Simulated assay, not measured.
Amino acid sequence: MSVGERDKMAAGEWYCCLDPELEQLRQRARDAVHQHNTMAPDARGSMAPALRALFSNVGDHVFIEAPFHCSYGINISLGPRVYLNAGCTMLDSGRISIGEGSMLGPGVQVYCAEHHKEVPLRSRGIEIARPVVVGKDVWIGGGAIILGGVTIGDGAIVGAGSVVTRGVAAGATVVGNPARLLPPSGKR
């Protein structure tokens, strides 16, 4: 039995993103995102129905501002009371899990896909997906970028505009590009 590109993507192996099945999944996500982004706010509520149905898990009292974008949606899990401000982008070729009470500022971007470094393979659509895990009660400031393979611990803070390339400990505050640890308050 041959392993399909979707299976390879889910397993964190190199896969071809130009696969027809993956394109169908992305089209389904584009349709759900379009519904979310174009519905009147009163009709949409906290999240458009098609977007809610697309995600792997949505806790109670989740709110996603428009506009929003995701690649697949099926790899996104949102805990209770998660808030995504306007302009968030989630390229969810890998699993994205956001814990209870976490807040993402406007324009936060989460990128799970990493394209191949060798030009011939990259030009054929070869990439790998790395998961992103955001713990509970995390605050990610506007315009921050979270790269694949990153885990952000409970209660952490990511400063606006930061580029997070490696894990962030629970309760830590990181800022900058690349994001670096800030000393505890009063010890700067």
Rank of each mutant, 00 (worst) to 15 (best):
A170W: 01
E23C: 11
A48Q: 02
D92A: 00
I145N: 00
T151D: 09
K187T: 15
V110A: 10
D92T: 10
C70S: 11
E13A: 15
G153L: 12
G87A: 07
E127M: 04
P131F: 00
Y15G: 03
E118K: 04
S77W: 00
G59Y: 04
G143P: 09
G4M: 05
D154V: 09
A43M: 12
D154C: 12
G135Q: 09
V150H: 01
I128C: 05
Q35I: 06
G149P: 06
V108C: 06
G59H: 05
G143D: 05
R122D: 00
P41D: 08
A129G: 08
A170Q: 07
I126G: 00
G101S: 13
N177Y: 14
V133R: 11
C16M: 10
C88A: 10
M39S: 13
F68P: 00
A113W: 06
F63Y: 15
K8P: 09
Y111A: 05
V150P: 08
G135M: 10
G73V: 04
G4L: 02
L18D: 12
A40L: 12
A66M: 13
W14M: 10
R188L: 14
Y72W: 10
V164H: 02
R44E: 00
P106D: 06
S102N: 00
S2G: 03
E65Q: 13
Y15C: 07
G171L: 04
R30P: 06
A40M: 14
N75G: 01
G149C: 04
E13I: 03
R81D: 13
I96S: 09
A50C: 03
G87H: 02
G135N: 14
W14V: 11
R52M: 07
R166Q: 15
I64Y: 08
F55A: 12
T165H: 11
V163R: 11
E127T: 02
A170G: 12
G4P: 03
R122P: 13
A170M: 06
C70P: 07
I152N: 01
I64M: 03
V119K: 07
M9L: 10
